[in-house]
């Protein structure tokens, strides 16, 4: 019936989790049912649809976060954040449907006579993974979670001159925000930048805090002398742990997808370590903070 009242509308957000939460906030505030929630970059206009650019508001995002956490619990909120970072076109709209499902007043499930359980602290809408409003989001969140795990496995750091560490990656979802905490605590004595070349997003850890820099314009020094030695040692080790009679490249590809190989030290040819380039080549919006070693030590 909404279609009769409103013309079709698409919400465009900035691709961040806060952006998607702001879009969800708008859907409630404006009493609208958008047909698409997607990012500006991915949006393809449809006939008879007008687009609304959603301004990211941390305050609105926090209100939505509190609401979801209160009504549906932490895992449900986490799933929405994961979905926000997905490259799936329909992730935004699936997230909205899921949030509406979580927030809907208690009702008897229309699919069967089973009553929806009382909302207590243990209520988790994700348990109902066969529900048409839950299953699509669950799938997306799981795919993003898997990609996050792949990054925990396959991100490779290089030591640059001047003591900064740098990792370049190409994940299929914008998962850098989801891995920063892991690497920041684990490598805490070592400042680093993780750069996602697909989503042009840099995660920066300066040994005190981590933060994200979209479309970062950075000049990085070259890899250190030691870096070449260690990378060579790693390649050597990699070549020597394999057992020839067990050769099974299909199995390897299943666990370590080929699309990720180009950023894996052990799959690169000798001498391909980082030469110190400007990244990315255009479109700078923000600058890396000046107190980082790389800023002090430009090429």
């Amino acid at each position: 019936m909404n279609e009769e009242v409103y013309s079709e509308i698409a919400y465009l957000y900035d691709g961040s989790a806060e952006g998607l939460l702001s879009a969800i906030f708008s859907a409630y505030a404006r009493h609208e049912d958008p047909t698409d929630i997607t990012t500006e970059k991915r949006y393809r206009p449809r006939l008879g649809q007008h687009a609304l650019a959603i301004e990211t508001s941390v305050e609105q995002a926090l209100r939505v976060e509190r609401g979801i956490r209160r009504e549906a619990g932490d895992p449900a909120f986490e799933a929405v954040v994961y979905a926000a970072l997905s490259d799936d076109e329909a992730a935004g709209i699936k997230a909205l449907r899921f949030v509406r499902h979580c927030m809907a007043p208690m009702q008897t499930s229309h699919r069967s006579a089973v009553k929806r359980p009382q909302r207590n602290r243990r209520y988790n809408p994700l348990d109902d993974i066969t529900h048409p409003d839950v299953a699509p989001l669950y799938e997306i969140a799981r795919a993003v979670g898997n990609e996050r795990h792949r990054m925990l496995q396959f991100i490779r750091f290089q030591e640059l001159e001047g003591g900064l560490w740098f990792a370049r990656c190409n994940p299929s979802a914008s998962v850098v925000p989801l891995v920063m905490e892991h690497f920041a605590t684990r490598l805490n004595v070592q400042p680093f930048i993780i750069y996602d070349e697909n989503h042009r997003l840099a995660g920066v850890w300066d040994k005190a805090d981590w933060y994200l820099v979209p479309d970062a314009d950075m000049q990085l020094p070259a890899a250190s002398e030691r870096e070449r030695e260690v990378a060579a040692a790693w390649r050597l080790f990699y070549q020597h742990v394999s057992i020839d009679p067990r050769y099974n490249p299909e199995l390897r590809r299943q666990f370590m997808p080929k699309r990720l190989w180009r950023n894996l030290t052990e799959m690169q040819a000798e001498g391909s370590s980082y030469k110190g380039v400007r990244l990315p080549d255009s479109g700078s919006r923000s600058e890396i903070r000046a107190d980082l070693p790389l800023a002090r030590n430009p090429e």
Partner: peptide, 30 residues
């Protein structure tokens, strides 16, 4: 869990960091 000023941590599920041409996981410097 990690500790300030110290390097590293461990997680209960473990983590494979690479896979050799025979499809076996590389998680530790063996």
């Amino acid at each position: 869990s990690a500790q300030k000023g110290a390097l590293g941590g461990a997680s209960v599920a473990g983590c494979c960091h690479s896979f050799t041409p025979d499809g076996r996981c590389v998680t530790l410097l063996k």
